[in-house]
Design a protein around this nucleic acid. Structure first.
Lengths: 226, 226
DNA sequence: TTATTTCGTGTATTTGGTACACTAACTAGG
DNA sequence: CCTAGTTAGTGTACCAAATACACGAAATAA
C-alpha cells in the first residue's frame, strides 16, 4: 500500500480526534463556540473546535490543548460526551471523534482565532450556521446532556463567575430551561441543596436594593445531588 | 519508519478497540462476562470481551460483533459507556478503548469461548479475578452507571425474561441496590410508572400461591422515566 | 386438615414540589 | 427631601410522591 508515508501498522487504524462543545451564556442566551475552518475539508465553514490526538496525551488533554490552541481559552469545566464513529463522517479518512462538552463563564474570555481556525466566535444555539461534519448532531447531544444534569448537579454554576447573586443564578436556569421560574421556590430549592454559601458582600448595581452574593461551597467539583 | 507494514499514514494513529461489560444476574448475584485471553499481552489472564475496530463498521457494530465472536451472545441491550485513552494502557501500542455496557437475561445464554478467547465465564462482581489492562476500572464505571440509571429508567427489565413476576423484579432491584425493599411500596412505585402490563397468566412454582406475571409495555426501549 | 411458603393488598405520615403577593432597600430625578 | 422606579427578599397553604408498617389469600406437601 502507501509505502511513502511515515507511520505504518499491520492493520488499518482510524484517526482519532476530539471535538469540544463549549457553552456559555451571553446576551441572555445559551451560546456555543465555533471556529471557522481555515483548511479543507469544509474550508470556511463553521465547526466545533477540536483536532487530532497526539500520541503522548490522553483525550482530555487533547481537548484542552485544542481549545487553547484554537481559541485561547483554558481552565474550564470539561466532561466527556460521546464517541462518534460513523465510517464516512469525515471525507478524508476514517475518523473517530471523541466529543467533550465544556462550560465557561462568559465574563472572562474573548475567543481569538489561532492555528487552523480562521476565526472563532460565539453563536446562539437558536441561530447556528451550517456546520461541518456531524457537528450539528454533536451540539444537540451536548445540549441534551446539559439540560439533563441541571436538576441533579451543580453544573449550572460553571456558567457564572465565582460570586453571584441568586437572581443571576435563577436567570441561568431560566435561560437553559427556557421557562420562567418562581423566585421563592427557586430560592427555597437552593437552600435545601446546601451548595451555596453567602459571601457577606453585596452586589450594588442599578437603582435598586443591593443583592447578597454567594459562592459555591465546593467550587471545583460538579456534584451530583440527591 | 516501519516500511514493511501495510497501512501507512502521514501522522501516527492509535489503534481503536471496543470492550464490553456484559452484566447478568445469576445465582442471586450481579455477574459480569469475562474471557480468558488466548494471546499476549496478558495471555491467560481474564479480560472483558472486545477487540479492534474494523474500518467498515461503527463502534456499536464492533462491540456487537466482538461479543458474538467471542461468546456467541447476541440481541441484547447495549449502551456506550466511556472512552479510555491513557497512553500506556496497552503495552503493545497506543490503544483507545471505547467501552460499552450491556445487559442480558441470564436464562438464554451459555457463553462459549471462541476466536481469541480461550474460555468465557461469568464472574460475580464481588469475586473478580485479576484483570488485564484497565478492565477492573471499566467494570466499576459500568456498575456505577447501571445503578445510577436504575431509578429513572426501565433498564433493570433487561435482566429478566420476557414475562416475570413482581417478586422476581423486586429481587433484581434488591440485588443491584444491595438492600431489601418494601414489597408494597415497590409494587406501588411500579404501578405509578405505568411500564408493566399483566400477561393474564400465572406463574406456578413451589408449594405456594401462584404469582401474576407481567411484561414490559415497551420491551425494546429503555425509557427514561420522569 | 394442617403446616409452610410466597402472593397480594391499604392507610397514615413525612417529605418535596408547586402556587401565589407583598414589603425592603436602593437610585434617580424632580 | 420626597416620589417613582427597580430589583431583593420572604412565608404559607396545597398537592404529589416516597416511606413505614401487618395480615389474609392461595397454593403444595405431608
Amino acid at each position: 500500500m502507501n509505502q511513502d508515508q511515515s507511520y505504518c501498522y499491520p492493520y488499518p487504524h482510524p484517526a482519532v480526534t476530539t471535538d469540544v462543545v463549549l457553552f456559555t451564556i451571553r446576551d441572555e442566551d445559551l451560546q456555543v463556540l465555533l471556529i471557522q475552518r481555515a483548511n479543507p475539508p469544509f474550508r470556511e465553514m463553521w465547526a466545533l473546535p477540536g483536532g487530532f490526538l497526539d500520541m503522548e496525551e490522553d483525550l482530555e488533554a487533547c481537548a484542552k490543548r485544542e481549545l487553547l490552541e484554537e481559541t485561547g481559552i483554558e481552565g474550564l469545566y470539561l466532561e466527556q460526551l460521546y464517541t462518534f464513529s460513523t465510517p464516512d463522517r469525515d471525507p478524508r479518512e476514517r475518523v473517530i471523534s471523541v466529543t467533550y462538552f465544556a462550560l465557561t463563564r462568559s465574563d472572562t474570555l474573548q475567543p481569538k482565532a489561532a492555528s487552523d481556525a480562521q476565526e472563532a466566535a460565539w453563536f446562539s444555539l437558536t441561530q447556528l450556521p451550517e456546520l461541518a461534519f456531524d457537528h450539528a448532531k454533536i451540539i444537540q447531544l451536548a445540549k441534551q446532556r446539559l439540560l439533563a444534569k441541571l436538576n441533579y448537579s451543580t453544573i449550572a454554576f460553571q456558567l457564572l463567575p465565582e460570586t453571584f447573586t441568586l437572581s443571576q443564578l435563577q436567570t441561568v436556569y431560566e435561560i437553559l430551561l427556557n421557562e420562567k421560574l418562581d423566585k421563592r421556590n427557586f430560592r427555597k430549592g437552593m437552600q435545601t441543596r446546601q451548595v451555596l454559601r453567602e459571601t457577606g458582600k453585596l452586589s450594588r448595581t442599578g437603582n435598586h436594593r443591593p443583592a447578597k452574593t454567594y459562592r459555591v461551597i465546593n467550587p471545583t467539583r460538579v456534584e451530583i445531588i440527591k
